[in-house]
Design a protein around this nucleic acid. Structure first.
Lengths: 183, 183
DNA sequence: CTTCCTATATATAACCG
DNA sequence: TCGGTTATATATAGGAA
């Protein structure tokens, strides 16, 4: 076409970092860059031994996540409960038995995560919130607070949700194999 | 030095994507790539309008996070409470008043996040866990459950923590200006 | 929505202050 | 531990399948 006289491609063009107006271009860029972002995250984790988690929600409300060791293991942040000393307990490291999980689901459909890790954690984390009207939200609490009776059921429910979301999470929880991308 | 005869630099060298043995190099690479990852995340969000969250835990257990619109707003996934219909409430979209927040702190020191968003959310989310010994953990709950008495104090504590962590979060919560990097 | 291809814009491994 | 410089390895915008 008239565009390329001689050359076979215009090559990469510089663009401004602002919302791409054209819908389809925006979509293509989203897919390409999402992949690049996950790759970078993967490399960072692999090269430096850091734990990395990336969660992306597309405009279409699709959920994409990457995690090494597992999204949740990373997201599950820590924080000594406000006002409470972060009792430095001899926490085992990167372990085998990841028995617990955390979960998330996209509003309109799904999108989820769950997982656990014992590594590095010492304190626990916190929070939630929401301001407006009748919305519901969260709040972190001590597991113990759940009581031995409720916990099992809760975990069970979470696992079920996880399964529905797909085997994505399982892949992440797998052993050594290079971290993969979540749909 | 004998290394560079003529040239002034060896330029970027190709490296294998596997743990960098040399500790200092690993540290330098961590810092550089962490910045690059956040930048990419920022661009993805800006270019495509997607919500992106990135959380990184260094080997030294430092926490770094990036989020657009705010880490938590993204991480705070949704999931109708297990067993409870996700009452499709007419949730306002991406809004102005983000009055609540969520927080996270790195075990040994800090690292935090907070935020809220009304966008897309309809349901609430879920959980956590931990299996082993005396570790403490979380669990999400309905804000209402906190009670009007405790909530204010809790939020207060969180805000204080947030402030200590820096104005980073505030930057993220800001209006249009390009999303920035945390820490 | 993913993928291929080419020409460039960028990210960064080494090194130095 | 951090930045700044340079030469190169990579990521990608366009265009099209």
């Amino acid at each position: 076409m008239a565009h390329l006289l001689g050359r076979t491609s215009m090559g990469r063009q510089r663009i401004e970092i602002r919302r791409i107006d054209n819908k389809e271009r925006r979509q293509v860029t989203f897919t390409k860059r999402r992949g690049g972002l996950f790759k970078k995250a993967s490399e960072l984790a692999l090269l430096t031994g850091a734990s990395v988690a990336v969660v992306v929600f597309s405009e279409a409300n699709h959920t994409y996540a990457f995690g090494h060791l597992s999204v949740d293991a990373v997201l599950r942040s820590y924080a000594p409960v406000p006002g409470e000393a972060a009792a430095a307990a001899p926490v085992p490291v990167h372990g085998e038995d990841v028995d617990l999980h955390w979960l998330r689901i996209a509003a309109d459909e799904i999108g989820a995560q769950v997982a656990a890790e014992q590594a590095r954690m010492r304190g626990v984390a916190a929070q939630i919130v929401q301001a407006k009207a009748g919305r519901r939200f969260w709040w972190e609490a001590d597991v113990d607070a759940l009581g031995e009776a409720q916990l099992p059921e809760f975990v069970k429910a979470l696992k079920k949700l996880r399964d529905n979301v797909g085997r994505h999470v399982n892949a992440l929880l797998a052993p050594q194999p290079p971290p993969l991308l979540l749909q």
